[in-house]
Design a binder for these strands. Structure first.
Lengths: 187, 187
DNA sequence: ACCTGAACACCGTTCAAGT
DNA sequence: ACCTGAACACCGTTCAAGT
């Protein structure tokens, strides 16, 4: 019961933050969606900073799990890299939302320290996975892998941001296509 | 006098929005900075939406002017393209701020229609300039220029976003370097 | 353990009214 | 033309009280 409510809060807060950011996240709307009162949220998460950090942490953990699963299911590392943008595509499919941590990256100045740390973790697990996968695919010199991984992560994030601003998911696909054509991503 | 106040508001609002976004922009702090009361701001800009649209409009107009100036000063189109990321670098240099319109792209869901339109204009003038400059540099088939231009715009935006989240401008430089290495930007 | 109503201090926004 | 006080709606948060 307790765990159910906490999980419900986490997932509702995640969806809200992917649409409105950390600043746009508010306890009253969130509580209404969960079916409790705003004051009750503080039983589960003492402060907004606690909630924000918990949401961002769960977010990168889920992403890390999805990336691991991808490597487990697809034997070819090149195939995994070709599929990587689909992780970001999914947010756009889900109500033109965006990556929680991209939104929070923009909000950097107003983020509690604990939340910033989780945003950093998100970037780190993406870069690590890309780095390892690039090397496994034999596409990059190991010494250059992390640099290349960061470039892919940043570029795909930017593609999502631009596509969101037009509410046009085909634009995301086109941008990813252009990255492939340019050689940033494996074709 | 009137024009001075309005200009002061616009420039203070721009700086604030580049750090805190449209949602984080607040009339009281802004008014204090300008030296009037919060309520007085509404004489110059009836609503926050009006202010946001005016700031975003001025922002893309300034950017368009800077890009035109670059083309005027540098005869070589390739040199202009190599310099393009410096426009985005400047925001990071200025207190780790970011492109106003990237921030607003994230805030898409909560943006008044008039503000959305100016965000779109910003992207359009960037893509147009890049497109023309790519063709002038003989780097891209005219039929493909706009697609390539959008990819550059999105990728550089993403690099700025990631660099901001680490408050690390050297990361921006590294990412731009990687884009060049990958062939997205001219070396 | 889990939730709530009521209250708190605060802040952005609006508007009628001032000069 | 330009500005303001005061009211309003909303925010995160607290806490004593309920189940």
């Amino acid at each position: 019961m307790s765990m159910d409510t906490k999980e419900t809060i986490l997932s509702a807060a995640r969806a809200a933050a992917q649409a409105h950011g950390y600043g746009g996240l508010n306890f009253r709307d969130l509580a209404a969606q969960v079916g409790i009162k705003a004051a009750s949220l503080h039983y589960h998460f003492p402060t907004k900073a606690d909630l924000g950090a918990a949401v961002a942490k769960r977010y990168w953990q889920d992403t890390a799990a999805a990336l691991e699963a991808m490597r487990g299911e697809m034997p070819d590392a090149g195939d995994c890299l070709r599929r990587y943008p689909s992780i970001f595509r999914r947010s756009l499919e889900n109500g033109n939302r965006m990556c929680l941590c991209s939104f929070m990256a923009a909000e950097f100045d107003d983020l509690p320290e604990a939340v910033r740390d989780e945003v950093e973790n998100f970037a780190n697990i993406n870069v690590s996975w890309l780095s390892e996968t690039l090397v496994a695919a034999g596409l990059t010199d190991p010494a250059e892998a992390e640099k290349r991984a960061r470039a892919i992560f940043a570029a795909v994030s930017g593609a999502q941001l631009l596509a969101r601003s037009r509410a046009d998911i085909t634009l995301f696909d086109e941008l990813v296509g252009s990255y492939r054509q340019a050689g940033l991503l494996p074709g």
